[in-house]
């Protein structure tokens, strides 16, 4: 396949316009029925300079996709935070969700091992094992774990959730396992969210992370989070 000037241009445009879409197809998806593998490490890069203060597209998409947010007591798997730097007065808008740490406090503290980190980096709650003790909710530095305290009805088929268990952002693991993007990334109109495989050096996200500075939230805790932010 020869990459002429028009094709290169198309490639460049694809990287800029459809963040992640090109990149997930680049990494060959797992054969159906196979387990998650450590040869992938899913990362999310959020460019806060492209994140609008009033926009909640990612939040709305997640609610629609995962089915949370009906009762008022439901915790927000993703939420928008408006931050003002106290020393300078600069304001920034950013989405906050489970940071899918490589050293997750929630996994360490879970008494039954229900809170787990998959081989490809996604931190999940195995609701079959969760006893609802809420220790993971206590432990999370980002308040990204929540407890379901009311009966759940009309769950999404791909996202079982139920009363008495803990939950949080799954990085749309059901979509990833089918080779698709997380709902929030797809919904972001401003192009602020870039998703991909950190272990693929050719992936757009790897290139973007090498090219421009980014930070992880509460980096001093040594969590090695999969979510990184630019513009903070």
């Amino acid at each position: 396949m020869s990459a002429g000037p028009t094709r290169r241009g198309l490639l460049a445009a694809a990287i800029a316009v459809a963040p992640g879409l090109f990149l997930v197809a680049n990494a060959a998806p797992r054969p159906p029925g196979s387990a998650a593998s450590a040869r992938n490490r899913w990362d999310l890069l959020i460019d806060t300079t492209r994140c609008d203060a009033g926009c909640t597209a990612c939040v709305d998409a997640c609610r629609q996709e995962q089915g949370w947010g009906g009762p008022a007591s439901d915790g927000p798997w993703i939420r928008k935070i408006e931050a003002i730097e106290m020393q300078t007065g600069r304001s920034v808008s950013l989405p906050l969700m489970c940071q899918h740490c490589a050293e997750p406090p929630c996994v360490e503290v879970c008494p039954t091992g229900a809170s787990l980190r998959r081989a490809d980096g996604i931190v999940l709650v195995d609701r079959h094992r969760c006893i609802g003790c809420r220790y993971c909710v206590m432990a999370c530095p980002f308040a990204a774990r929540f407890f379901v305290d009311a009966e759940v009805h009309d769950q999404r088929a791909a996202t079982p959730r139920g009363k008495g268990t803990a939950e949080g952002c799954t990085l749309c693991v059901h979509r990833l396992d089918a080779g698709r993007l997380p709902a929030c990334v797809e919904a972001c109109a401003g192009g602020a969210m870039l998703f991909g495989d950190l272990l693929d050096p050719a992936a757009g996200i790897s290139q973007a992370l090498r090219a421009r500075a980014s930070t992880a939230l509460r980096a001093e805790l040594g969590l090695d989070a999969a979510i990184r932010y630019q513009g903070l």
Binding site: R30, P32, G33, S34, A35, A36, L116, R118, A119, D120, I122, L124, D126, R127, H128, A157, A158, P160, V173, D177
Partner: peptide, 18 residues
């Protein structure tokens, strides 16, 4: 199947509760 799916991400086609 539920352990394999929920913990390892091994979702065998046709084996989901759905």
């Amino acid at each position: 199947d539920r352990s394999a799916a929920a913990r390892d991400g091994a979702r065998r086609p046709g084996h989901g509760l759905d």
